[in-house]
C-alpha cells in the first residue's frame, strides 16, 4: 500500500505550480477570463514544450497537472483536449496533439434529449458525412477538432467543417459552444461496443479529472481564506481567532482532504484500469465537485464584502467550481448511479 505520488510526479507538480503561478497571477487570470475569447492563445506551444501533451504521460502524471490547473486555472482547452478527446483519437491525430499542433474537445450533448455522456446520441453519419446538432461543447470555440458522439459511434470532424456558435459563460476561461454539423466530412474513430466502452472510459477519466481540478480549486479557496483570516483584523484581533471564522476553515480543510483522497483513488483506478474505477470516479466527482463549491462559498463568506466583489479573484474560482460540480449532471446524478451499485 502506497498512497503517494512518485518523486518525478511531485517534481512535475512543482514545475506546473510555478509555471502557472507566474503566468496566471490573479490579475492576469481576470484579464483573460474577461477577454473576448477567454483563451491564452500563446500558452499551447509552451504546454507541448513542457511535455504536458505527451501521449506517454500516465493518468497519474496527468493527475498532478489537473490538480494544479484547478489551483491556478489554465486558460486553454487542456481539459477538453487531454481528458475528453485524446483517448478517442487515432495515432496520427494523437501525435499532432502531442506536438502541440492540434486542440480538440468532445461534443456529446444534444438539445431536447437527455444530455449525459452515456446517453444515446441522435447525430448520424452517412457516406462519411456527419449531420447533427451539439450543445454545451466545452471549449467549443477554442479547438481545431471535434470528437463527436453519434448513433453509429465516435467520429472526428474538423472545426472548420462545423458551424460553431460561441456562448458567454459564468466561467470565462471555459466557455461552451453550440455546434451544428450539416453533412460535415467525418473520420470514424470507434463504433459499436468499442465506442460504448471507450465512451465509458472517457467518462470515468473525465470524472476523475473534474475531481482533481475541484481539489485544486478548493485548495486555492482555502489558502485564500486562511491568509485573509490571519491578516484581516477586526475588534483589534485577526479574525482567524474567532471560531465562527476558524471553524469554517477547519470544515473546508476536512472536506478538501476527503475530496483529495477520493480524487487520487479515482485517478489510480483509471490509470490501473481497476475494477472499482466506475464507482471510484462517480464517488470522486460527486464529492469533490460539491467540496469545491463548499470551499469557495465559505471563502467568500470569510472575506466579507471584499470577497463578494468582481475585483476579488474568489468568484473566478467559485464559477469554475460550479462548472465542475455541474459537469455531466449534479452530484445527485452520480450518487444515483452509486446507489444502483449498492441497492439494485
Amino acid at each position: 500500500m502506497d498512497f503517494a505520488f512518485s518523486e518525478e510526479q511531485e517534481q512535475l507538480r512543482g514545475f506546473a505550480r510555478d509555471f502557472l503561478a507566474e503566468r496566471y497571477d490573479d490579475v492576469r487570470l481576470a484579464q483573460i477570463a474577461d477577454s473576448e475569447t477567454g483563451v491564452d492563445a500563446e500558452v499551447w506551444a509552451k504546454l507541448a514544450e513542457m511535455g504536458w501533451l505527451d501521449a506517454e504521460l500516465t493518468f497519474l502524471d496527468q493527475a498532478v497537472l489537473l490538480e494544479e490547473t484547478g489551483y491556478r486555472p489554465l486558460a486553454a482547452p487542456y481539459f477538453s483536449t487531454a481528458v475528453l478527446a485524446a483517448p478517442a483519437l487515432d495515432d496520427e491525430t494523437a501525435k499532432q496533439v502531442g506536438e502541440g499542433r492540434l486542440t480538440a474537445t468532445l461534443a456529446w450533448a444534444e438539445p431536447g434529449v437527455p444530455q449525459g455522456l452515456l446517453d444515446a446520441a441522435g447525430a448520424t453519419v452517412s457516406g462519411g458525412r456527419l449531420t447533427g446538432e451539439k450543445v454545451l461543447v466545452p471549449d467549443g470555440a477554442a479547438v481545431d477538432l471535434f470528437v463527436v458522439t453519434t448513433a453509429d459511434g465516435l467520429y472526428a470532424v474538423d472545426a472548420s467543417d462545423a458551424a460553431v456558435t460561441p456562448h458567454g459563460a459564468l466561467d470565462g476561461t471555459r466557455r461552451p459552444a453550440s455546434v451544428r454539423f450539416d453533412g460535415a466530412p467525418a473520420r470514424p474513430l470507434a463504433s459499436g461496443d468499442t465506442a460504448a466502452e471507450l465512451l465509458g472510459r472517457i467518462r470515468d477519466r473525465a470524472y476523475a479529472a473534474v475531481a482533481l481540478e475541484a481539489v485544486g480549486v478548493a485548495q486555492r479557496a482555502l489558502d485564500l481564506l486562511v491568509a485573509y483570516a490571519k491578516d484581516r483584523k477586526q475588534f483589534g484581533k485577526p479574525i482567524g481567532v474567532y471560531q465562527a471564522v476558524s471553524h469554517k476553515a477547519s470544515d473546508v480543510y476536512v472536506r478538501l482532504q476527503e475530496a483529495r483522497s477520493l480524487a487520487y483513488w479515482a485517478a489510480w483506478c483509471v490509470a490501473e484500469n481497476d475494477p472499482m474505477a466506475r464507482q471510484a470516479c462517480l464517488a470522486a466527482k460527486a464529492f469533490a465537485g460539491e467540496a469545491a463549491v463548499f470551499a469557495c462559498e465559505n471563502a467568500i463568506q470569510g472575506h466579507g464584502g471584499i470577497g463578494f466583489t468582481w475585483e476579488h479573484v474568489l468568484h473566478r474560482y467559485y464559477k469554475r467550481a460550479q462548472w465542475l460540480a455541474a459537469f455531466d449532471g449534479p452530484a445527485r446524478a452520480q450518487r444515483a448511479e452509486v446507489a444502483a451499485f449498492l441497492m439494485d
Binding site: 482567524g240 481567532v241 476558524s246 477547519s250
Partner: peptide, 13 residues
C-alpha cells in the same frame, strides 16, 4: 478538534 485543525494544521492564530 476544529480548534486543533485551525491552529496546528492551518496555522491560524
Amino acid at each position: 478538534l476544529r480548534n486543533i485543525i485551525a491552529e496546528r494544521v492551518l496555522g491560524l492564530p
